[in-house]
């Protein structure tokens, strides 16, 4: 097994992870977005560091008016 061999299989996983993070950060940085606790930086860290579940937790519980 070499890294070059598994890279094509890893790319979709990386794309999914980045897409999830991107969707979360895009939503978070909307000017009209209000978040629980009022601190967007904390939610940004949850999205970026929370791997797959971070953005999920943000979308379910992070937004104030949804």
């Amino acid at each position: 097994m070499t890294f070059e061999e598994i890279l094509p299989l890893l790319i979709p996983l990386l794309v999914l992870q980045l897409a999830l993070m991107g969707v979360g950060l895009y939503d978070l940085t909307r000017p009209d977005r209000k978040v629980k606790g009022g601190n967007k930086l904390v939610w940004g860290l949850v999205i970026v560091l929370g791997e797959l579940f971070g953005p999920l937790v943000y979308f379910l519980f992070g937004r104030e008016d949804v």
């Binding site: 890893l10 992870q17 999830l20 979360g24 797959l52 579940f53 979308f59």
Partner: peptide, 20 residues
């Protein structure tokens, strides 16, 4: 609210990550 989209991405990552 993008819940369906986000859950689909999370599940798909686990789905393809498991055989890998």
């Amino acid at each position: 609210t993008r819940r369906m989209l986000v859950v689909a991405i999370v599940f798909t990552a686990f789905g393809i990550g498991s055989p890998f």
